[in-house]
């Protein structure tokens, strides 16, 4: 290993053919965070939303149907696994695929709610996530073409392999597109969807993939 990995020296490297999965101090911390929240999603009960009528005692409790609960929990768990994968993978194309998986799981968590506002928000987010695959896959292919490898381990151990800056920018923009949900949910359009632990999975997975892409861009 010629260059130092800013994420620390890997404890161990799992080998899946051409694709290495490496556990360095940085990736392990993110991996454990994703794991903990996935376990939360497995055991948590969904929140029940209550609308209180202003100036009176009356309130409406919104019920979440069992089918909806199940599909959203499934999506949240899948999202957790996808985030875990994205945290530790050491292959660039594999990384972009995991990011796309996180994106579509986030769409799924939101889209399962049968409410027009929520569905509309999910649709808008979904088309962003789909268009974000263009810079993502484009960046991975450009890296393969300019350096001859997709393995992050190769890229950081061989100083001669330099990835052009614009390609790194494409990669970051693609990850931003896939993980955009929590940013434009500032207006809480998406959080009107009942079921707290699952929606938190959206924000958490986006945060995690942003943190990981920083490491990736520094490493390659």
């Amino acid at each position: 290993m010629g260059m130092v990995n800013p994420g620390g020296i890997p404890y161990f490297i799992l080998e899946f053919g051409d694709e290495l999965v490496y556990f360095s101090p940085y990736t392990v911390s993110l991996f454990i965070l994703a794991l903990v929240f996935t376990i939360f999603a497995v055991i948590a009960r969904p929140e029940r939303q209550v609308d209180i009528v202003f100036g009176g005692d009356a309130f409406y409790a919104k019920e979440t149907s069992l089918a909806e609960l199940k599909i959203r929990r499934f999506m949240a768990i899948a999202c957790g696994f996808a985030s875990m994968g994205a945290m530790v993978t050491g292959d660039l194309f594999n990384f972009t695929l995991f990011i796309s998986l996180v994106g579509i799981c986030n769409v799924g968590i939101v889209a399962a709610v049968k409410n027009r506002h929520v569905q509309n928000a999910a649709y808008q987010y979904g088309i962003v996530a789909l268009s974000a695959t263009v810079p993502l896959f484009g960046a991975a292919a450009l890296i393969a073409a300019t350096t001859g490898t997709l393995s992050m381990v190769e890229l950081w151990s061989n100083a001669a392999l330099a990835v052009p800056l614009v390609v790194k920018a494409l990669l970051v923009l693609g990850v931003m597109g896939e993980g955009m949900a929590p940013f434009y949910a500032a207006k809480a359009e998406m959080f009107r969807a009942p079921g707290a632990p699952y929606v938190i999975m959206c924000s958490l997975s986006s945060l995690l993939i942003f943190l990981r892409v920083i490491e990736v861009v520094l490493v390659i």
């Binding site: 194309f93 695929l97 796309s100 579509i104 769409v107 799924g108 889209a111 049968k114 027009r116 569905q119 509309n120 999910a122 649709y123 979904g126 088309i127 996530a129 789909l130 695959t133 896959f137 991975a140 292919a141 393969a144």
Partner: peptide, 27 residues
């Protein structure tokens, strides 16, 4: 390798289109 990367790329696009068009129909 390019051909092997195109297949996943294509499939991801198709899969997301399937989900999105169903969301569109519902919304």
């Amino acid at each position: 390798l390019a051909e092997a990367l195109i297949l996943p790329g294509l499939v991801v696009g198709i899969a997301e289109l399937l989900a999105l068009s169903q969301i569109y129909v519902t919304k």
